[in-house]
């Protein structure tokens, strides 16, 4: 139980730092959440008999939702219950969009520490598929800073646009993705 608590405190500290604009802390947070979210997604989908749903897609939807809704976390609380809430919401949502309506119990999430489910690899193809419905410009920026790992400045330079424009385009791209994976039935 102590290991879980220590982990929660570390993650919460990263999230607080991220709220102050610390990008390194944010990267640490998201990287630490990734295997936990994979585990949650795989187990939940298997449990409700939806193992055919691509769990990596669901993981990306959850990550995006965590990002877009990060202002709803109450800094005085632990971050993991909030993460579980978002994850649960997005898993149910993902199932519903694929034509299933099932309850996913939240409580069992809390026992998941971090047990990678046998996949470590870069999920480039999955990301490329995830963003394929974006317009050219938004997709290019999103892929440049994600798959290619460029900074916003380098991506802007390569595309011959200003850094500000690149920043706005990236944000709109993520927002569009959140909409595609959030409200479409």
């Amino acid at each position: 139980m102590d290991a879980l608590k220590g982990r929660d405190e570390q993650l919460s500290a990263w999230m607080r730092a991220a709220n102050r604009g610390d990008q390194d802390a944010y990267r640490s947070l998201l990287s630490a959440l990734l295997p936990i979210l994979r585990e949650i997604a795989v187990k939940s989908l298997a449990r409700v008999g939806a193992a055919t749903v691509d769990s990596e897609d669901v993981v990306q939807e959850i990550m995006l939702a965590i990002h877009m809704r990060r202002h709803t976390w109450d800094e005085s609380a632990m971050v993991m219950p909030w993460v579980y809430g978002i994850a649960r919401h997005k898993i149910i949502d993902a199932l519903r969009r694929r034509g299933r309506r099932l309850e996913v119990p939240l409580d069992e999430f809390e026992e998941i520490i971090e047990a990678p489910v046998g996949r470590e690899g870069l999920s480039e193809q999955e990301l490329v598929r995830f963003v394929h419905r974006l317009g050219d410009r938004q997709r290019t920026i999103v892929l440049a800073v994600s798959v290619e790992g460029l900074s916003i400045r380098d991506a802007a330079q390569r595309l011959g646009i200003s850094e500000g424009t690149a920043r706005v385009t990236l944000h709109r791209g993520l927002k569009t993705l959140a909409r595609i994976y959030g409200s479409e039935r």
Binding site: S31, G121, L122
Partner: peptide, 18 residues
Amino acid sequence: MHTHPLIGALVEDLPSSP
């Protein structure tokens, strides 16, 4: 450890905080 490429995009978008 490899991280997911999406993380890069989310980190770059951090300054857009609502």
